[in-house]
Write a protein that binds this DNA or RNA. Sequence first.
DNA 1: TTGATATTCAACCATACGGTTAAATATGAT
DNA 2: ATCATATTTAACCGTATGGTTGAATATCAA
Lengths: 126, 126
Amino acid sequence: MVEYQTSPLDTIFHALGDPTRRRMLHALAGGERTISQLAEPFAISLAAASKHIKALEKAGLIRREVRGRTHLCRLEPGPLASAHEWLGFYQRFWTDRLDVLEQLLRDEDAQAVTPDSATPDKGDEK
Amino acid sequence: MVEYQTSPLDTIFHALGDPTRRRMLHALAGGERTISQLAEPFAISLAAASKHIKALEKAGLIRREVRGRTHLCRLEPGPLASAHEWLGFYQRFWTDRLDVLEQLLRDEDAQAVTPDSATPDKGDEK
DNA sequence: TTGATATTCAACCATACGGTTAAATATGAT
DNA sequence: ATCATATTTAACCGTATGGTTGAATATCAA
């Protein structure tokens, strides 16, 4: 299917979509960890853990510093901030009860005009 | 591999990991949309769009109201809030320059004792 | 009833994902 | 040199993902 371009958010959210990787990030929040330390809590092979860590790295969520034969990983907060910011856009929907307000308006509309006669998006965009 | 249990965050982040679905959510931020309205901006079949919408639904990110032959979709902010909250845990890493502070502390430690002689996680977790 | 519209379902396809095991690589210790 | 430790690579496997097309379903309009 030939990927044309992948947004950073694709990679970030994909990386976050796995519980193992999320727990690894959580561990990293406690400070630097080596590959084996990151892998230890999980009942998977080191090779599998290595792949997870690569996924986190690819998303920029962690950085690796090779120190001798061990690889030190540390959290890289930037991409997490991006994801947080992206979600922040929708914050208004769950704060200030704006959603409840809109729900009320919708219900009123549904009663005022017959549900199907009104154009579905009645100019509330752009 | 037999999934034993899937955390809501798995499904939510997975749903957010696709650009088409993210754009659909964005459209939904402008108000209710039908399936075909959501599908319209994309060069994919309606069947494909239907699958994307199901993924969003499965993650609880949208709700569907069948109204006659059209399906009205609306944003469901709860799961977005969960994801936002999850990321919020890491906020301290990109605000208040706390990460920089920790970096400095790490560097000091690395100089005080030889990097490998110290146990890598020296009680700074839990 | 007939036909158009809105959406899903089923079957299929190529690629990605998450896991495995076994071998390779690189460093550290003796 | 030898051996152990830390990690990656390669080959493989089953399932999931994202797309397709074509047929099915359901509703609205004539």
